[in-house]
Design a protein around this nucleic acid. Sequence first.
DNA 1: GTCTAATTCTTGACTGAGTCCAGAATTCAT
DNA 2: ATGAATTCTGGACTCAGTCAAGAATTAGAC
Lengths: 140, 140
Amino acid sequence: MEGDIAQKLRENGLQVTAQRLAIMRAVAEHPHATADELIDAVRAIIGTVSKQAVYSSLGALAEKSLIRRIQPAGSPARYEDRVGDNHHHLICRSCGATVDVDCVVGEAPCLTASDDHGFDIDEAEIIFWGHCPDCRSVGA
Amino acid sequence: MEGDIAQKLRENGLQVTAQRLAIMRAVAEHPHATADELIDAVRAIIGTVSKQAVYSSLGALAEKSLIRRIQPAGSPARYEDRVGDNHHHLICRSCGATVDVDCVVGEAPCLTASDDHGFDIDEAEIIFWGHCPDCRSVGA
DNA sequence: GTCTAATTCTTGACTGAGTCCAGAATTCAT
DNA sequence: ATGAATTCTGGACTCAGTCAAGAATTAGAC
């Protein structure tokens, strides 16, 4: 429901705007999409948006953990809907395909570093790199 | 020894050039440096290099696993010397400080995904995000 | 419903990191 | 020494993302 989203925005002190609702919808409908792809998706929903509105909303939403941002090496940032369940990602080196992978040890295991060097760690980001079945068969 | 490096290059089918030797030295002397910082470091060693030479050499060296490239979100790529020992990184969200962390479970544990989706996985990249002691005390 | 302050959006210029290209210079096997 | 292959130089260019100023929208107070 659109209402749910509006409420989540309000709960986090964010104003409810047509752009943000559309962005949330676009992210939900296009998991792992880039900002550029989301701009197109949002335009398909409400006609027009500025690049800036999308970037700043994605930033605000990510900050409030309503969405999650992942930045794989060699690729622009991607956004997803699925938050709060410590899952990781598996990315194809040749085609960039991105899939979700549940956490190896079940319960946020890797969240603990062997030595935290005095840091206050709040997130562990894990990316598995490899080649997807399609690209392997092509010999990439 | 410079000779060791030259030999490693040859073993991997790469030609030995002044630029590459200097790049290897620069990476060794500046762990976690960005390409830009390395360009400066290389210039300090051999006087001049083109940006391109550095980028392409870093690429070739990383491909042969003579160095490792890490690409933290929101920061340019960084390079390091320490390869082959499955260690991870801990990065400060505010100042970008990067430190090495040994693997949590000792022996490349996270290298196994719960479900590989048919992918041929060759690397697991783990980045811990948080705030370093300095930035915490400043209240960042 | 109206008003006002704060937040958000638009437009467009701009930066930073990295890539592409063509020609010149080096390396290295013979 | 010689020639083929690799690597380097320099500069234009792309792509992702940021900055800034003013216009528009939102939401709480009346």
